[in-house]
Design a protein around this nucleic acid. Structure first.
Lengths: 206, 206
DNA sequence: TCAATATGTGAGTGATTACTCATATTTTGG
DNA sequence: CCAAAATATGAGTAATCACTCACATATTGA
C-alpha cells in the first residue's frame, strides 16, 4: 500500500520522442485529441479518453506531455505555425504588389487555412483561451501580427497596430462564421471579406 | 472537471421565487456567477463556489436552477434580451432614416451593450457555446438576426440572410477585440466598425 | 550477444465537484 | 395565533479525472 503523494501537475520536462515509434505515439495522441475536442468539446476532453482513442496508455501520454493543457497548447502552436507559414508565402509572393493584391493574398491564405477542418479551427480558438499557451505559441501570434503590420506599413496605412488587430478580428469573425455554417464557396466568401477589409482601409476593391 | 452525477441531473422544473427574499437569493446567485465566470473562467465555475460567493447554500441554488448549466443559460438569456432591447430601440428611432444612419444606430447600440462589462460579455459568449441554451435564449438570437435582416431588407440590400450574419460576425469580432484590449474611445471604435460595415455593404460612410 | 536506453502499460490515488435530502427557519393567509 | 407553504441549510454521496509509479517490453549500439 504505497502511500503516494497526491497527483500534482508536475512541470517536469518530458521526453522528446527519439524513435519513430515514439513519434507515432505522439502523432496519434494529437490526432485523437483533435477528434475528441471537436466531438466532445473541451468539457469531454480528458486524458484518459484521449489516450484510449489514440490506442496508447495514459502513461505514454504523460511521457510526452507534462499535463492536459500541454496537448491543447501544442495543437494551437502547430496551427499558428501553419497559418504563419501561409501568410509568409503570401507576403513573399507580393513584395511588389499593390495593397489590394497583397491583402487579397493574405485573406486567401487565411481562408485556405481555416477551410480544412473549420470545427477544429474553432474548437482550438476557443480552447486557446482556456489554457496557458507556450511561449512559442505566443511568439507565433506576435509574429502573425507583425507580418500584417509590416504589409500595411509598406503601403502607408495609418495606425498599423490598431488596423492589424481590427483586420484580424474582422477576418476571423467572418471566415469562422461562414465556414462553420457550411459555406463552401470560398471565392464568394473571399469577395465579401475583401469588401469589408477594403472598406475598413478606405481602398477600392479589385 | 464537471461531469454528471449519480443522481441524474434532474430536469425537474424548479421553483420560481415567490417572495422578495427568494428573488434576492436568485439575484445574488446570478451576480456571484458573473463574478466567478469573469474571475476564474468557466473552468473554475462550480456550484459550490458560486453559492458561497452569493452568500447562499448549494441547496438554495438548486431550488431555483436545475443544474449548473442553467445558471449560465439564464445569464446568456438576460444578456441577449438586453441586446435585443437596445437594437429594437435603435430600429424604432430610425424607421425613416437612410441605411447609413440606421446602421450607425445599430452599431452604437451594440457597442454600448458590450461596453459595460466587456470581460463578462466575452466570458458569456464563450460559455454560451459550452452549455445548452434555453429555447428562449435561442429565440432571442433568432430575433436579433431577424431584426438585422428586416433593416437591411428595408433598404434593398441583397442577400440579407448572409449579410446579416456577416455583419454580426464582423461587428462582434471587432468590438469584442477592441473593448477587451482596453479601448475606451468608443467614438473611434464606432467609426472603424462603420468603415468596415459600409465597405461590406458598398455604401458611403456618413 | 547483451547491457543500456527508450518506450509502453494501466491499476491505483487523492482531489474535485454536481447534486440530494433530511431537517431547520421564515413568511403568509386566515 | 397557528398551520401550511415557502425558503434556507450544508454534510454527505457517488462519480469523474489528472496524474504517478512500479514494472514490462522493445530497440539500439558496441
Amino acid at each position: 500500500m504505497p502511500v503516494k503523494t497526491s497527483a500534482q501537475p508536475s512541470a517536469n520536462p518530458r521526453k522528446k520522442p527519439r524513435q519513430a515509434r515514439a513519434q507515432a505515439t505522439v502523432d496519434a495522441i494529437l490526432q485523437a485529441a483533435a477528434h475528441i475536442l471537436v466531438g466532445q468539446g473541451f468539457e469531454g476532453f480528458n486524458t484518459n479518453v484521449v489516450a484510449e482513442r489514440a490506442g496508447a496508455s495514459v502513461g505514454s501520454l504523460y511521457q510526452y506531455f507534462p499535463n492536459k493543457e500541454a496537448i491543447i497548447s501544442e495543437m494551437v502552436r502547430a496551427k499558428r505555425a501553419r497559418l504563419l507559414n501561409g501568410l509568409q508565402a503570401a507576403e513573399a509572393a507580393h513584395q511588389e504588389s499593390e495593397l489590394p493584391e497583397a491583402l487579397a493574398a493574405l485573406v486567401a491564405a487565411t481562408i485556405a487555412h481555416q477551410k480544412g477542418w473549420p470545427q477544429l479551427s474553432q474548437a482550438l480558438d476557443r480552447a486557446a483561451a482556456l489554457v496557458p499557451l507556450s511561449v512559442e505559441g505566443t511568439a507565433l501570434t506576435a509574429a502573425i501580427l507583425e507580418l500584417l503590420q509590416r504589409v500595411l506599413r509598406r503601403h502607408d496605412v495609418a495606425d498599423v497596430e490598431i488596423a492589424a488587430l481590427d483586420l484580424l478580428s474582422l477576418c476571423r469573425g467572418m471566415i469562422d462564421g461562414a465556414l462553420l455554417r457550411g459555406e463552401t464557396d470560398t471565392a464568394a466568401l473571399q469577395a465579401r471579406v475583401m469588401r469589408a477589409a477594403s472598406g475598413y482601409l478606405g481602398i477600392a476593391v479589385t
